[in-house]
Amino acid sequence: MKNFGICLMIAGVIWGVYAFNMKTSIETEGRTVGNGTYSLYVPGQNIHNLDLAARKQNHLLGAGVTVIAGVILLGFGSLQKTSKSSDESATKQTSKYDNIYTKAIVILISIAATAWFYEKFVKP
């Protein structure tokens, strides 16, 4: 769980860097409106696009949630202690399988949550 938390944190930071570098403005081309004496040249401009800004915000939110999930998994993974009791073999077997199932469940939940978030907020 500790390693998966670290991977989630790294993925969240990379996603955050990508989100911070997203463009939120579009360029318009300059053009001439009208003909003859009364024609007017409209220069090209940068226009702030609210849709692109909302997408950037959603990506940043997703990256933040991913980093926080990674921190939580890292914290809970650090709390696990190895037990050295007399029935070490029995506890190792159960903890080994419990740990595998726990990791699989956490991975499936993370994938499902990320897919839901993408479908709900990021996908146009």
Rank of each mutant, 00 (worst) to 15 (best):
K23I: 00
I111K: 09
I10F: 08
V17L: 15
W116G: 00
M22L: 15
L61I: 11
K2G: 02
N58H: 15
N46E: 13
T82E: 12
A54T: 04
V17C: 11
K84F: 13
I68V: 15
L61R: 09
L74G: 02
K123F: 08
A115C: 05
A104K: 01
S83W: 06
Y97W: 13
G34V: 01
V67I: 15
A115S: 07
W116A: 14
K56Y: 06
P43H: 06
I14V: 15
T102H: 05
Q57I: 08
V17I: 15
L73R: 01
G34I: 00
F117I: 01
K92R: 15
G62H: 04
T28S: 12
T114E: 00
G44V: 00
S110A: 15
K123M: 08
N35E: 14
I100K: 11
I68G: 02
K92V: 04
M9P: 03
K96R: 11
F76Q: 03
G70R: 00
T28L: 05
A63R: 00
N99E: 10
Y18S: 07
L60V: 09
V122G: 07
A63T: 00
S39H: 10
N58Q: 07
N21K: 10
N3H: 02
N58A: 12
T24E: 15
L50K: 10
I47T: 10
R55T: 11
T37A: 13
I26A: 07
V33M: 12
W15T: 07
K96P: 00
A53S: 15
